[in-house]
Structure formats: C-alpha cells, structure tokens
Design a protein around this nucleic acid. Structure first.
Length: 391
RNA sequence: GGGGGAGUGUCCGAGUGGUUAAAGGAGACGGGCUGUAAACCCGUUGGCUAUGCCUACGCAGGUUCGAAUCCUGCCUCCCCCA
C-alpha cells in the first residue's frame, strides 16, 4: 500500500484507495494516453512505472489509447488550443505507443482498449452524455480561467474533453485512474461522470510531471526537451548528461525511485544515465553508451559508428571533381546550404579534426575521400567516393 | 445581430510611406570556458546555382518613384453589447 502511493502528489478521495485495496479484489487501474506524438518519453514512464507497480501487486491495468480523444485535444495545462494531428498520424502513433508502453508494462496483465470503440457513439447518446455535466463545472478548471482572462480562446470541443475522458472510465469500469498532476481536473471529473452513470466513482492518483532536459519546462516532444524510450542508447545517454544538475534529484526520485547519491554531480549524472540506458536497452548498454560518450566528449575522438555519406552525388563544382561544401553539409546534417555556409564561416566545420578554413567552399573530392566531416562537437559523417563500404 | 480591437520572421514582440531581410527578447546553432551541468563572453540565426538574385510582415487586389506601414474586398482570432 505505501509503495503504491510513493511519489504520488494526490491520492483522492482521502482513504478511498486504502478501502479498495483492502477489499482484496484485483483493481482495474486505468491510464489514458492520447497518441498525439510518435514516442513515449521518460515523462510518460513515471506514470507507466507506477502502473507496473500495480500490476506486480496483482492488479489489472487498462491502457486506453485515446485515438478518439486525440482528435478533440486535451486542454490540460495548455495556454492555447493545440493543433490536432491527422487521422493517419493518430493511427500510426497508436500502434507505436502500445509497443513502447510494453517496454514497461506487463503485457499479460494489461488490457489495451481504444476509446473510439465507445466514443464513436450515436448523436443521441452523446447528447445524453453532455446532459450529465454543467458548463459551470466544466469551466471551473484554472487553465480555462487563465486562458479566458488572457483572451486566448477556449473551443467548445476542448470544453467537452473531460466528459469524454470521464466516459472512458465508465466504459472500462475503472477503479483507479492515474495521471500527471496536470490531469487532476480530468481525473476528478471522471468520478462525476461515473456517478452520473450509476457506477462507483474511481479513486485518482496524480504523479509529478517530469521536467525536460532543459530543466525548465515539462518534458514534451513538441518542446524538443524529451528523452524517448526508443532513443538509441548513445543518444539517450547524451541527452541525460545534458540535463541541468538542478534537475538530477527529480530524475533520480521519479525515474529510479532513489535519492541522488552523495557524490560529485558528474559521477551521479553518469550513474543516472547508465541506469536508465540499461533499463531501456538491456544490462550493459549503459556502460557501452558511456564508453562511446567518453570517446566523443572527453577524448574528443571520432565515434566508432559514424554513418557514411557518398560523395558522388555532390561532384560537379568547378569542372566536375570538386564538391560544394555548403551543399554537402546541407545534405549530411539536414541543414540549408545557407546554414552550411554560415557554419563554415564560423569555423564550425572540421575534416579529420582540422577546421576547414572559412573561405573554402569547393574542395576536390580526392581531398575528402575517406575523411570524417564534423559539425560542432557531435555531428559526424564519414565521406566516401563510390558505394558505401559498410552500412 | 451591433460596436471595438488584432493578425509581423521558430516563438514573443517593436515598427504607421523611403539606408527595413525588418529593433529588442527568448530559443536554437557555432566558437571560448567546461562536467554535452550552471554561470559567463563572442558570433550567427529566410532561401539560393551568391560580391548578386529570389522570397517575406493573414489572403487578394489597388494607390505610389517607393508599402509591413495608405485604400478596397476577403479570411481568421479576440473583447464588449444583444
């Protein structure tokens, strides 16, 4: 019992969860995720790990893929209406979400449902649902209050979101629903909806929102400050090494369930990164990622798995056998050729570790073949003439 | 339905006829320092076949030698009244 509420911010209503657990029956523990982006990141795993704890205690997890609600747009914590993903994106994301969630959840104790199963209901049923809540209640939430005060609009669709999420709880007979603290209103509202349908109201548990790698904003794909559970090991390690020291205690507590060890910050952060890489890539992956990290950032050497780039398509400048560097950079690192020029002008481009002189825009292919093209500290490509020699 | 206000570059936000590819800030990127931390310093930040050319201030037209700035229509958003 005490385990199951560790790290929780709210466990409501008071005493309810203890009662439910005391009854000895396996509980149906619900989590809804809207497939609005492609990847599950470490922020999601805080809640997923909690679900896994419930599973280990013998309870059943009901994972709801919000393929219908993704088309409505959860207003939680938003300062403006979010752009909605297309049907194709939702479909694609729904598939990857499940796969990624099972990196943490026990497949055998998880019931996966899509809320389009029940939310795609006849209009008269939908109206029946709408009749069960008052506008005043829907407007209570403070994120709406803020938005209305700020003059940014709230769409009628967003207003309805909590009703739909609440109906999910009705549809799956949820005993408990988990979510981030930003979900508190929606979770509580679900109780009202269940009651309105004559069902026993769920208890709710909210968990802290993990801060992103910038250490300031919540972790989110759209903010670009996330660590995806499917990120390659070296990338995951690197991203974790880049978090501000101030964010470390939170990462230790929420992701590892431990206190930050009393050792120099750099050592602690390496441990954090190793352990998390191990978790998602298997034992030993953390050490390998750390070794690769040391090679690039401590020894300033070239990583051992540099992708190759074929030079042939870029031949042609100055009579045929020179390569126009801005274009090469653009293709190699997904830049514009103007950006490539700027990097050259700023001395940010190296060949085999040697800075390329600012004025050099065209270089004979023979001088590039086999060399390592580098931009900044961490972007590399091995240049080759002819077909790639390895993958 | 009536009245009022607003739409600027990745974001925020100046700019009301002419050195404006558009102040300033944030973010991002490059360089320095370093622990891919923080803090700090410097630089860059529309695109291109690049000493020039093209595109750009909601959309479409118009006035003008010249428009983000003026006019007309349209679209979108917000506020107040009903």
């Amino acid at each position: 019992m005490s385990d199951l509420t560790k790290n929780a911010v709210d466990v409501l209503p008071e005493g309810r969860l203890a009662e439910q657990l005391g009854a000895g029956r396996p509980l149906r523990v619900k989590l809804g995720i809207d497939p609005t982006t492609a990847d599950i990141h470490l922020g999601h795993t805080v809640v997923l790990e909690k679900l896994a704890e419930f599973q280990r205690a013998g309870h059943t997890v009901v994972l709801i893929i919000g393929d219908f609600t993704a088309r409505v747009g959860d207003p939680s914590g938003r300062s403006s209406t979010r752009p909605l993903p297309s049907a194709e994106e939702i479909e694609a994301n729904a598939a990857t979400y499940q796969e990624q969630a099972f990196k943490i959840l026990d497949r055998g104790r998880t019931e996966v449902r899509r809320n389009s199963e029940w939310l795609r209901m006849p209009p008269e049923d939908l109206l029946g649902l709408l009749a069960r809540a008052t506008v005043a209640r829907l407007l209570e939430r403070d994120d709406f209050q803020k938005r209305m005060a700020a003059g940014t609009g709230v769409t009628a669709l967003e207003l309805l979101y909590p009703l739909l999420q609440g109906y999910d709880s009705v549809a799956v007979d949820a005993d408990v629903e988990l979510g981030g603290t930003d979900q508190k209103f929606n979770l509580l509202f679900g109780r009202s909806v269940q009651e309105a349908y004559g069902k026993p109201p769920q208890s709710i548990i909210t968990l802290p929102i993990l801060v992103g790698t910038d250490g300031v904003q919540k972790m989110s794909k759209s903010l670009g400050n996330y660590v995806g559970v499917t990120d390659p090991a070296p990338e995951m390690f690197g991203k974790l090494m880049s978090i501000p020291d101030a964010a470390m205690p939170e990462y230790f507590r929420l992701l590892l369930g431990a206190e930050q060890p009393a050792e120099p910050p750099n050592r602690a952060k390496r441990e954090l990164a190793r352990r998390l890489v191990d978790r998602f890539h298997g034992a030993g992956a953390g050490e390998r990622a750390e070794a690769a990290f040391n090679r690039v950032f401590v020894e300033h050497a070239v990583p051992d798995d540099v992708r190759e780039l074929e030079l042939d398509p870029f031949l042609g400048a100055n009579g045929g056998n020179e390569v126009h560097l801005p274009r090469l950079l653009a293709a190699a690192f997904d830049l514009s050729s103007s950006e490539g020029r700027r990097l050259l002008a700023q001395g940010g481009v190296k060949l085999d570790g040697e800075p390329v002189p600012a004025g050099a825009l065209d270089i004979p292919a023979s001088l590039l073949d086999g060399k390592i093209l580098q931009v900044g500290k961490r972007r590399f490509r091995r240049l080759v003439v002819g077909p790639p020699r390895n993958s």
